[in-house]
Amino acid sequence: MQTLKAMAPGLTMIIVGLVFLSQTFVMERASLFDPAGGSFLPALITIVMIITGVIVIIQDQVKKKAKTSMMETTAEENLENEAQHADGAEDIQMTWKQYAFIFIYFVLTILYVLSISILPFSVATCLFLIISMIYLRGVSWKTNILVSIGSVIVFYLVFTRLFHIIFP
């Protein structure tokens, strides 16, 4: 189980590469072996992508081994800190609560996009802004309403009046 989890990023990369590779086989009016054709270059790129996936799996395995062996030899904290630093960016730790919070907001945005087709644009946008600010908390209702209506007016003036962009 642990191994699988450690391999997840690399495996995902390989799968994505394979999906794209399979699509290069079905391209019309393109020959895979003709460099001037439409599918030669994409196929080449997918192969590179799959190779990077393999590399990442190997790297992750090596790292894991290094970590476990380090723990066995009760390495000093300094060393571990250094190892983490070599990874680049700091590890991003997120709780399930945070994931849920973000996911719900994303769903809210999707609902907003869906509602544009049903409600008039200004109403949908205003509602979205108000609900967003309520959901994210910490904004007084006065600011909420003022900002929402103000933004909608600005959006309306710029996009609809000036640029004649008509929403469905």
């Binding site: 907003y112 996009v113 544009i116 979205f128 802004l129 967003s132 933004s151 996009f159």
Partner: peptide, 13 residues
Amino acid sequence: QVLLPIIAVITVI
């Protein structure tokens, strides 16, 4: 809390 929803609307429009 105010900025993010507005940016969200801008990305959509």
